[in-house]
Nucleic acid binder design. Structure first.
Lengths: 196, 196
DNA sequence: TTCTTAAGTAAGTATTTGCTTACAAATTTA
DNA sequence: TAAATTTGTAAGCAAATACTTACTTAAGAA
């Protein structure tokens, strides 16, 4: 019976959640299984999180803090748009590959529960990702590097499919997915879309 | 107590499943709720489907029969690739808009259950959609209409994000989603990607 | 018309769900 | 060192889950 402070246990619990989701599917995401995965009793889970939903919300907050805020920094950087776009895309892809359960959690749990609070947070994450990418594109157009006739909204809408495509490929093709240059390949496509 | 033959009830049950998923979320998809939605008792559900999973598999078979086979026809048509591509994309978008629960069911239920049989069928649907789109693109390249330097696989991978993007927009933006010309807009982007 | 079959039901089943309670023991604070 | 607080547990909660059972009744075939 080793005891650890709440903040540490909270991190362990959130990590366990993502592991279970990617490895066993959302159906196995019970408080009982989370506890077993962490190596504590089920009751202990509720020492560190008020409800199961709070764990999910906590993970979403991590995404906002660790991914969205990083993307915001990249988007606002004072570097050439092309360079920024590449960093932006790779940052997203790498984050999702490092945190493999995230995509399923975001797009599945929210529509699974159909809960307002979860939906609002998903909306925030989704819209920010889209708008911050849109800013880079608008900068490039303003600097006359890219096609001013293109609809920025359409491009960002298409862009938003990339993380999900990545995830489907990772799940369906678990072993041999060639993700090494995934972001470079997608980047080249986006560049062609933006070319004058 | 009006009685109906199995084949009719099966259709009613599958339609009810899609309605529940889109309206209330996957969590509400219990056999109890399905029965209430259809207007029969829970036990009756099991007269018409052996298990709940069989209902889901049945819906996936409908997708294969009604969407994938239609897409196959379009892909193999003897019309100009550009025309075929437009029809192909619009057929997909319209099908998913008409059957609103489908996307969530496909991408959520499969990863929710993490079940082999469901995964295999999802894989089939996903790969066919991708490969049939790829055939159109390859035809266009062979006819020297489109850029032969582009990676067909990359384009189809990006293409596969479109249905999911559509769905996220529909779910998050339930009321005022401007889907009228969604497929035209996405088509224009794909055309720019393929242009020499 | 009779008789078989298929479609219906209410009331169960065992299991799982998220969460609580009552109490024990480790750690921090006074 | 003593007291207060925090982290842990086992056992139990009501509600929900997918599915079964035993029995009824409507509809089509003989």
């Amino acid at each position: 019976m080793t005891r650890k402070p709440t903040d540490i246990r909270q991190e362990e619990i959130k990590a366990a959640v993502l592991r279970i989701i990617f490895r066993d599917g959302l159906k196995k995401l019970s408080t009982k299984n989370i506890a077993t995965e962490v190596g504590i009793s089920e009751g202990s889970i509720f020492r560190h999180f008020k409800t199961k939903k709070d764990i999910i919300l906590g993970i979403m907050d991590d995404v906002i803090e660790n991914l969205i805020e990083k993307l915001r920094d990249i988007s606002l950087e004072n570097t050439p748009p092309k360079e920024r776009m590449f960093k932006y895309l790779c940052e997203t892809v790498n984050y999702l590959r490092k945190n493999k359960g995230i995509t399923i959690l975001l797009f599945t749990e929210a529509s699974y529960e159909n809960d307002d609070e979860l939906m609002t947070k998903l909306n925030y994450i989704f819209n920010n990702q889209k708008q911050l990418a849109g800013k880079i594109i608008n900068d490039g157009i303003a600097m006359q590097l890219w096609d001013e006739n293109i609809s920025v909204n359409d491009v960002t809408e298409l862009y938003m499919g990339i993380p999900i495509t990545l995830n489907i490929e990772m799940v369906l093709n678990q072993d041999g997915f060639e993700a090494q240059n995934f972001c470079k390949r997608m980047f080249d496509l986006i560049m062609k879309l933006l070319k004058k």
